[in-house]
């Protein structure tokens, strides 16, 4: 196979939403914003869903329009369900990534007190410079994370079940904890 073909193939196979660097910075930003410094983000499974909202302002807009009621628009409901299923499919990769980042001491991952088989995580503030997080490239992500914090309070301490109910089920999306 000619070299340029190989390059093309690799480029085509690249999925931004599943890229480890994409997942990494999204998780780091979430850990920086949600739990207060020194606190743990409980149950890593929530992270897989949270990063969907942090990276996509449309999803936040849907959450904003459907507070205390079901999502009216079928397209919006579909998008919200897509976020749920994407989050669920990324759970394993996220877990692997979290352990890798724990090895590199970027974060601290400990077995969860709330759920067996899950890990609670916290950002090691000293390992990454604040400039990284404050870079204007991440303006959108920071803004989204802050909006999410307003829409779903105490997100880092909620159980996975409560989180799914509040974010998906209460808004009319069929979702369940796997």
């Amino acid at each position: 196979m000619p070299e340029n073909k190989v390059e093309d193939l690799r480029r085509l196979n690249h999925l931004v939403g599943e890229d480890f660097y994409f997942l990494s910075y999204s998780i780091l930003l979430a850990l920086r914003i949600f739990p207060p410094r020194g606190s743990m983000f409980r149950d890593h499974r929530k992270l897989a869903h949270v990063i969907q909202f942090v990276s996509d302002s449309r999803l936040l807009s849907i959450l904003d329009r459907s507070q205390n009621k079901e999502v009216e628009n079928a397209v919006d409901r579909e998008l919200l369900f897509a976020a749920f299923s994407k989050g669920e499919s990324l759970k394993r990769e996220i877990y692997k990534l979290l352990l890798s980042m724990d090895q590199r001491s970027l974060i601290t991952a400990t077995p969860s007190t709330a759920n067996r088989g899950s890990v609670d995580v916290a950002l090691n503030y000293d390992s990454i410079s604040a400039d990284f997080f404050n870079n204007e490239l991440f303006d959108l992500e920071r803004k989204n994370a802050k909006s999410l914090r307003g829409l779903v309070p105490r997100i880092s301490t909620l159980t996975m079940e409560t989180f799914v109910d509040r974010v998906y089920v209460n808004r009319g999306v069929r979702a369940w904890v796997l």
Binding site: V16, F22, S55, L106
Partner: peptide, 19 residues
């Protein structure tokens, strides 16, 4: 979105060199 994420990926790669 992808383009902006790739920019962020490149930035993160340069900064953290994780993978």
């Amino acid at each position: 979105d992808d383009i902006s994420r790739i920019e962020k990926i490149i930035f993160t790669h340069e900064q953290l060199k994780l993978f």
